[in-house]
Design a protein around this nucleic acid. Structure first.
Length: 256
DNA sequence: ATGGCTTCTCGTAGAAGA
């Protein structure tokens, strides 16, 4: 099976690309989406189900919004962090083919002096607190999504220009390390990877053409899934499309 | 050059993204 994550930056705009990409990748068992940017009432549930998928979602108007699309039933669906009172729709968990998949759109933070920055750190702290017992209850767990954190300098096209900025600041990176300390591993780093592999490129200033990007979308796995993980890749193809999302999907392959 | 581009909205300019 494959587990994938993709920040689509509006599912309204990107639904055709999502369905086309899934059709081209039949090994993908479950795809987590972020930034669907739509209320549940207008979510294209019928279209996705008509294409043969199961779907679960939690959305709001304009911002945020997460979903799981799967080729197998999605069980024990949970929306939002139960320990963090928040109107922003940023987390969805479901069990697919025996794997607990947690899809997250982690806060951006905007800048270190924004009120959104402490919100980001608090959200990450709540995620950490919630995850520990969640992992104990579900040993086969994948935490996937747009983390809005580039874990190391090699995940940044120009570390000097980004030094100390939001997405790379030490408090954010510390929280990423705390996720690893829960027993999760960054599946991308289990394998040899090309240098300067990123998952997001700014729309502006020809970011994609210059490969001026960041690796901020991740698939983290617990040990039982690390043991069967055979690959993790960023698929740059959708980023080359007409009207692409600014993020590329990340796909982990599990021998399950 | 602190912008660039893309998306959204009780919209047609401003906020937000990262």
């Amino acid at each position: 099976m494959q587990i994938a994550t993709w920040n689509v930056n509006s599912l309204k705009v990107r639904l055709p690309q999502v369905l086309e990409w899934l059709a081209a990748h039949p090994e993908i068992t479950v795809l987590a989406l972020q930034e669907t940017k739509m209320e549940d009432a207008v979510f294209p549930k019928a279209e996705i189900e008509a294409a043969g998928f199961h779907v679960a979602f939690a959305g709001q108007k304009t911002y945020n919004g997460v979903a799981l699309i799967a080729r197998a039933p999605i069980e024990q669906v949970q929306l939002n962090l139960p320990n963090f009172d928040d109107p922003q729709k940023r987390l969805i968990a479901g069990t697919v083919a025996g794997v607990r998949v947690v899809g997250a759109y982690m806060p951006n933070g905007q800048s270190l002096d924004s009120e959104k920055y402490p919100y980001k750190l608090s959200w990450l702290d709540a995620l950490l607190a919630w995850l520990e017992p969640e992992i104990a209850a579900h040993p086969k767990l994948a935490l996937v999504g747009d983390y809005n954190i580039a874990p190391e300098d090699r995940d940044v096209h120009d570390p000097k220009a980004w030094e100390g900025q939001v997405l790379v600041s030490p408090p954010e990176r510390e929280r990423f390390q705390k996720l690893l300390a829960l027993g999760l591993k960054d599946s991308f780093r289990l394998f040899e990877q090309a240098e300067k592999t990123f998952s997001w490129w700014d729309y502006r200033a020809a970011g994609f053409r210059r490969n001026a990007g960041l690796r901020i979308d991740h698939v983290l796995l617990t040990a039982p899934l690390v043991d069967v993980c055979t690959a993790c890749v960023v698929d740059r193809e959708p980023r080359k499309a007409e009207r692409p999302s600014d993020h590329a999907p990340v796909v982990a392959t599990l021998a399950l």
